[in-house]
Write a protein that binds this DNA or RNA. Structure first.
Length: 593
RNA sequence: GGGGUCGUAGUUAAGUCGGUUAUAACGCCGGCCUGUCACGCCGGAGGCCGCGGGUUCGAGUCCCGUCGACCCCGCCA
């Protein structure tokens, strides 16, 4: 028998009950998490969005309700009327928020039944993710995932409140937009009305928000979905959400000032964490030199040591040759790791090979000095110099990579994070922010044989570097900035080019000829000629931000309905094939089955 | 495009050197139980060992292929 809701109104959420409610008559509605049937008394943990409350069916209170309770199974939907009572002495459950009280049921409506679940909602059991994804609606009932989405909602709420207070205007930009060649691969949407033509889903609202600055909105924001048709990772989904902002008549310091205060407010109000302002800063060049990467985790040391000059003139050919041919040699002092086994060091070697390193030289610092396969190639003076560079002491393990700069920095930068994990140097409750500034504007792409924008083609060069834009592009720095949290880039932005002449020059530098520039970005170039104010902005990757706030290492934990690594939704079974009729209407013909 | 890990009741796992009836816990079903809270006790049902092929007298176990999930490189801010 299924009961109707009738005129019952819920009086409060289950998790909201406290000792202050004792004696009150309440109506609760929710799901039966567990039933404990003692033959006489029946206990049910009733769960809703807010939490749990124990409800008690006593045959001496209401026989009919008790009989109904005998048929309750997991996840049945109930509405109960009853009285809040203190639990008898000795039966208080201190591990439960509502553990001091219970609701003695006087009347019960069974609003719906549930099939036996494909997996338990108990948090004690880890269930395979493909099953959780297929039954996402059940997985979302589990407190962990539910709380993640509640936190996410809180963060967007705080963000909107803060940005509106600070004069930002929320404007929605199109999802059906124009394909752009630079950057990530676009998701395409065929146009039925214009057969053979396609919209692109935006990788970001970049050009729209700049044009809103041309329009004079002064400050824009949007919590906006963005799309990139690239391969997925633990922290990458094909659609993701950005907190997207743009401001007029500002320089870098204005943007950073407003935005770091936003992040601090989010952490304070959503997580109770105080973030010290202003946040620390580091130039790109310094980040690469000390940490090998542009997203350094500054919660621990293990900094990279530059050794190229020292080893260039030594008898160790491998190192000397690398330096002679334009490469570099850097190292990490893994403090106190001289006890690592051969196997463990081999594993570290395999690890750096992932990032292109050919090998990992090592030195164990023992009481007798260097213990190392490469020790014989160095004089005792050279060893002293290298020890000094590392600050090496007995018990340390020195690790070296010699290769092209990019490979050395990349592999050692990643190895540094890995070592910190192994050595347990990372405190999960610490949040260390750092702004990375002074990025290079352009980077030479060896495969495409052209310069490519490090940030994007609309980023302004630094005023003092403008003169090098054509003569020495690699030397030109950008007015760009990234915010890095615990080694993860959570946002990035820049001051934009607001003069048409410089923007056109930029396109030329990127090897985009005038015709292409007109075809792809003509509307931006046109707009720039009608009184564009200096402007700049930033976008935060909201999914990744929330993920770091909850300490998860999967972005799927903060997205209600995420995709698998092959881009599938296991619940809805998207993507799927479509009717021939639909293809015909779009003027499309498939070449694959 | 490439490298790696995994796939056994509904779920989580075990399954030895290839050996005859594939285990356990939880869940499920039935019964009992008036203070439990991951309740307890008794009984029961439940399996195309991801799928396809091969080797073998014999395959959950070995080999090849394939599908799927996850992690990573490339790719991607």
């Amino acid at each position: 028998m299924i009961d109707f809701l009738g005129d019952w109104k819920r009086s409060c959420y289950c998790g909201a009950l406290t000792a202050n409610d004792i004696g009150k008559e309440v109506i609760l509605m929710g799901w039966a998490l567990r039933r404990r049937d003692h033959g006489g008394l029946i206990f049910v943990d009733l769960r809703d969005r807010d939490g749990l409350a124990q409800i008690v069916f006593d045959p001496e209170v209401n026989v009919e309700a008790h009989r109904k309770a005998e048929s309750i199974r997991n996840e049945y939907v109930l509405a109960v009327k009853g009285k809040v009572a203190p639990r008898p002495e000795g039966t208080v459950n201190p591990s439960l928020k509502t553990g001091a009280i219970e609701v003695i049921v006087t009347e019960c409506k069974m609003l719906n039944r549930s099939k036996a679940l494909p997996f338990t909602l108990d948090e004690h059991v880890e269930v395979a993710e493909n099953i959780r994804l297929k039954y996402r609606y059940l997985d979302l009932r589990r407190p962990a995932l539910r709380d993640n989405l509640l936190l996410r909602s809180k963060v967007t709420g705080i963000t909107r409140e803060y940005l509106v207070e600070n004069g930002f205007v929320e404007v929605e930009t199109p999802y059906l937009s124009k394909s752009t060649p630079e950057g990530a691969r676009d998701f395409l949407v065929p146009s039925r009305i214009n057969q053979g033509q396609f919209y692109a889903l935006p990788q970001s609202p970049q050009l729209y928000k700049q044009i809103l600055m041309v329009s004079g909105f002064d400050r824009y924001y949007q919590v906006v979905r963005c799309f990139r048709d690239e391969d997925l990772r633990a922290d990458r989904q094909p659609e993701f959400t950005q907190i997207d902002c743009e401001m007029s008549f500002v320089d870098r310091e204005d943007v950073i000032g407003v935005m770091e205060a936003l992040i601090a407010k989010i952490f304070k109000e959503a997580k109770g964490v105080d973030v010290e302002l202003p946040m620390s800063r580091m130039r790109y060049s310094e980040a690469i030199r000390r940490f090998g990467v542009d997203n350094p985790d500054i919660r621990f040391g293990l900094e990279l040591v530059e050794l190229s000059d020292i080893v260039a003139k030594t008898g160790f050919k491998v190192f000397a040759d690398v330096v002679a041919s334009g490469g570099i040699v850097k190292g990490i002092n893994a403090k106190g790791c001289s006890g690592l086994s051969r196997k463990e060091i081999d594993e570290l070697t395999e690890f750096v090979k992932i990032y292109g390193a050919k090998g990992l030289a090592y030195v164990k610092m023992t009481a007798e000095g260097w213990q190392s396969p490469i020790a014989k190639f160095f004089t005792s003076d050279e060893i002293k110099t290298i020890d000094a560079a590392f600050g090496a002491e007995e018990g340390d393990l020195l690790l070296f990579v010699a290769d092209k700069p990019k490979i050395v920095n990349d592999s050692l930068g990643r190895l540094r994070n890995r070592l910190a994990q192994i050595l347990k140097l990372i405190n999960d409750d610490t949040y260390r922010f750092v702004w990375i500034t002074d990025f290079p504007l352009l980077e030479w792409d060896d495969e495409e044989k052209r310069w490519v924008a490090v940030h994007h083609p609309f980023t302004a060069p630094m005023d003092e570097d403008l003169e090098f834009l054509e003569s020495d592009p690699g030397r030109c720095r950008a007015k760009a900035y990234d915010l890095v949290l615990n080694g993860n880039e959570i946002g990035g932005g820049s001051i934009r080019i607001h003069q048409e002449k410089i923007q056109s020059k930029m396109f030329r530098m990127l090897g985009i000829n005038e015709e292409d520039a007109r075809a792809k970005f003509g509307y931006l170039l046109d707009a720039l000629e009608y009184g564009t104010p200096p402007h700049g902005g930033i976008a935060f990757g909201m999914d990744r931000l929330i993920m770091l706030m909850i300490g998860s290492d999967s972005i799927r934990d903060v997205i209600a309905f995420p995709k698998t690594q092959k881009g599938a939704c296991l619940m809805s079974e998207a993507p799927s094939s479509v009717e021939t009729k639909q293809l015909r209407e779009l003027g499309l013909k498939l070449t694959v089955k």
